[in-house]
């Protein structure tokens, strides 16, 4: 099954170890990683940074909007609205600030008020990440989900997972995911191999 997964860690070294372990699992065939990146939420201000390579970040454009949307999408439909809105405060590892709120998020925020009491919505509001936390964001194919769960639990990671089908259909409309060959824009920001995560 193809899934988008957010693996949440309390510090950078744990997150780096999580990213390494993920690609080792790919190498031995426990699962297949299609791409992965690490994001962190700052202690001050709650900004989210996207780690990159020390050389060129490997992305065509600033990664903030894409990964903000994906973080929200893993949280579910409510998170999608917040994830897009949160992109306004997200910067890439290259410290490129994203300006402006995504249009769709403005209207969506009003709907959000109706479900604000809901625990799930409350959780989504923080994009799965508390201040100071890190997340390995990845798209994987896995036949046994407990393998990744057990490995990341051993590294003190907490896993949130949604199927690729659900995320893409929620994000781009019903039946978007029909032939499996479509790749949403945020996949561009998931590295297709291991990299040493670096923050400016």
């Amino acid at each position: 099954m193809d899934n988008y997964v957010a693996i949440i860690f309390d510090d950078h070294e744990q997150a780096r170890a999580g990213l390494q372990a993920l690609w080792v699992m790919d190498k031995v065939g426990d699962l297949t990683v299609h791409g992965a990146s690490i994001v962190r939420r700052s202690d001050l201000g709650g900004y989210v940074d996207v780690s990159s390579k020390k050389t060129h970040n490997g992305f065509r454009t600033a990664a903030g909007i894409g990964l903000g949307a994906l973080l929200g999408a893993v949280a579910g439909p409510i998170g999608m609205v917040l994830g897009a809105a949160g992109a306004a405060t997200i910067a890439t590892g290259a410290a490129v600030a994203i300006g402006g709120v995504v249009g769709g998020a403005v209207g969506g925020a009003a709907d959000l008020a109706h479900v604000a009491e809901n625990e799930a919505a409350e959780e989504a509001m923080i994009f799965l990440l508390k201040r100071g936390q890190y997340a390995v964001l990845t798209e994987v194919s896995e036949t046994a989900e407990d393998r990744l769960d057990n490995r990341m639990k051993a590294l003190s990671g907490t896993i949130r997972r949604r199927s690729r089908t659900d995320v893409l259909n929620d994000d781009f409309g019903a039946s978007y995911y029909n032939d499996g060959l479509r790749y949403p824009y945020y996949n561009t920001y998931l590295y297709p191999y291991y990299y040493d995560p670096y923050y400016l």
Binding site: D2, G29, T32, V33, H34, G35, E139, S141, T143, G180, L181, Y183, N187, P192, Y193
Partner: peptide, 14 residues
Amino acid sequence: AAQSISHAVAELRG
């Protein structure tokens, strides 16, 4: 291309 190939790898592994 890298992502599409990894999906092919996943399919074959499955």
